[in-house]
Amino acid sequence: MTTLISYTIFFASVLMLVALGGCFSEHSGVINLGLEGVMVFGALGGALGMRYADLPPFVMVVCCVLMAVLFGMLYSLLLAVAAINFKADQTLVGTAMNLLGTAAATVIVKALNMAADPNNTSSEIVYVVPKKFFMVNFMGFEISYLMLLAVVLLVISYLVLYRTRFGLRLQACGEHPQAAASVGINVFRMRYAGVLISGFLGGLGGLMYILGGVSQWKFEVGVAGFGFLSLAVMIFGQWKPLRIAAVALLFGLFRSLSNTYNGFPFLVELNLPGSVYNMLPYIVSLVVLALTSKNSHAPKAEGIPYDKGMR
């Protein structure tokens, strides 16, 4: 039971962080389908930090988080430049970013591994010791600092989106950019901000994902569709931070069942193949989307390149 809870919290906080990232980007009017790639790059940044930095524990944690966030933001610039400056098809850019994320991360890690040892052609980064720095014992649970950070970021996201001038302006750019521009808001700058924040949160989510359970990561495998699951979480969460957090918990529960169903006698008795539990989060999200998409609260101008001349 405790493993189920800790897995649920772990998956839920990753999903929540990345979904919040998507939420900021979409509120500014840019669909960030490339979150999967952003996560991979965030994970890469954090893993490189853990591998090369040799610092006292707390500084190390801060440093790795900064690396992950920085990599995520830099990578999301690929989307920002294409979608905002060049008015490119956002779906296509996002898809390309997901492919490029895994391919580029694999190439980078392999190149580094081979430079260190010509016989090492794996795409793995090992971080057994630094990983321990992230862990803290909290009421009997091993949890990572990043989960606390995730909760803090949830509160901040909520406040920024609904209680600050910046957040309200950001949302205006996603609903009706021309109207926003007519009252003097710089739509381009706002959309850049939205995409960069999604890179920030997505990159952090990526680092958190590779810190769960394992102490080494093989960059060839990417992040197994977590970026996409987060998008489903965001849609089911109706683009609202608090709902996103609640939905992330639900999805986290289903996702963690595939790791832990062996521990539940009644689930083992059902005698279902293990792959059913692997499929479960995806099936649930499909059903949920079918039930909730009819009256969607999506930002009205998302996915449409901003054209000053169109009023």
Partner: peptide, 22 residues
């Protein structure tokens, strides 16, 4: 080298395809 270079090239080509309109 390693074979993923070509995945890298082709995924970068897809990314560039988004600029075709431009």
């Amino acid at each position: 080298y390693f074979s993923q270079i070509s995945d890298f090239i082709s995924s970068f080509i897809i990314y560039l395809c988004a600029f075709v309109l431009f």
